[in-house]
């Protein structure tokens, strides 16, 4: 092992190459790209305004102008599913980003400094880990309201412990490596060592966890929406499922299509995360 070549560091190009060779990760990536395109192009893709009601309630899928049918208020289900991708993607990305930032900060400080700081931060992390996430999210959202910003914040704040523990373990390992010692000897300040020296070297597994976090955040947002705690001023997949509850027998399409959309989005990020994990794990790497 060369002195200044950290073991876990894998070049971006190499990871990409690995990912490309993996069908699962690639499929996940393709699904994410499609989801992102749908979200970005929603105004052009959606055949109707998602909030537009009409007297044509409960039209079945395949009706003229309503490929996936209409709901109890005559709103187009396809347009709802298309616009719902925006909420899922925004909440998923922003919440996972929030969780990752908090996780990195806590994990890095904890792992780099160790000792009492580590002890305290890890107990706090454990506290967050043992709290049932969904129940707490329900309570917080019910209490503070369910705007998009609140949803992102709540889901983000409840999702960071895994990242924190991962980053901590990486820092614990790296802080004794020669390149960190070298940085110390050169008189670098801890903040700089943490962010400039170590962090880039441990980012790969963090990104894996982040992509799995996105999937979890999408699922949590949909669950909150299903319980009627989504943002009431946006069309979201969870919210669509919520209103569909009373019409499962009468209009199955109201629940099936948003349900399928949630499953596909979650599956996409999970596949991508798994693929990324395999691609960055040197033990699983073949042919190098």
């Amino acid at each position: 092992m060369a002195a200044s070549a950290p073991a876990a560091t894998v070049g971006a190009a190499a990871v990409w190459g690995q990912l490309m060779r993996q069908r699962r990760g690639l499929l996940g990536l393709a699904m994410i790209v499609v989801l992102a395109l749908v979200a970005i192009l929603a105004p052009w893709l959606a055949p109707h305004d998602p909030f537009s009601t009409s007297r044509n309630a409960f039209l079945p899928p395949g009706s003229a102008g309503h490929l996936l049918g209409t709901d109890h208020l005559g709103r187009d289900v396809l347009s709802g599913v298309i616009y719902g991708s925006r909420v899922s993607l925004i909440v998923g990305l922003a919440a996972a980003f929030t969780a990752t930032v908090i996780g990195i900060l806590v994990g890095a400080v904890s792992g780099f400094f160790g000792g009492l700081v580590d002890e305290i931060l890890m107990r706090i992390t454990e506290l967050f880990q043992i709290i049932p996430r969904f129940v707490l999210a329900l309570i917080v959202v019910a209490f503070f309201g369910s705007g998009l910003f609140n949803l992102i914040l709540v889901i983000g704040i409840l999702s960071w412990p895994q990242t924190a523990r991962l980053v901590r373990s990486q820092f614990l390992r790296h802080r004794t490596l020669p390149y960190v010692d070298a940085a110390r000897v050169l008189g670098m300040r801890p903040v700089r060592i943490i962010f400039r020296e170590i962090l880039p070297n441990v980012l790969a597994p963090v990104i894996v966890v982040a992509s799995l976090d996105i999937a979890q955040a999408i699922l949590l947002e949909a669950s909150l929406g299903f319980f009627g705690l989504g943002d009431p001023n946006l069309r979201s997949w969870g919210g669509m499922l919520n209103t569909a509850q009373g019409y499962v027998q009468r209009a199955w399409w109201m629940s099936v299509f948003p349900g399928v959309a949630i499953s596909l989005a979650v599956l996409g990020f999970n596949l991508f995360g798994d693929g990324l994990n395999d691609a960055t794990d040197p033990r699983l790497r073949s042919g190098s």
Binding site: F51, H72, L73, G228, T243
Partner: peptide, 16 residues
């Protein structure tokens, strides 16, 4: 009142 389903549906129609 969020417990009233008819209100939620009416709100969506009024929004539109």
């Amino acid at each position: 009142d969020s417990a009233r389903g008819a209100f939620a549906a009416a709100a969506e129609i009024m929004r539109d």
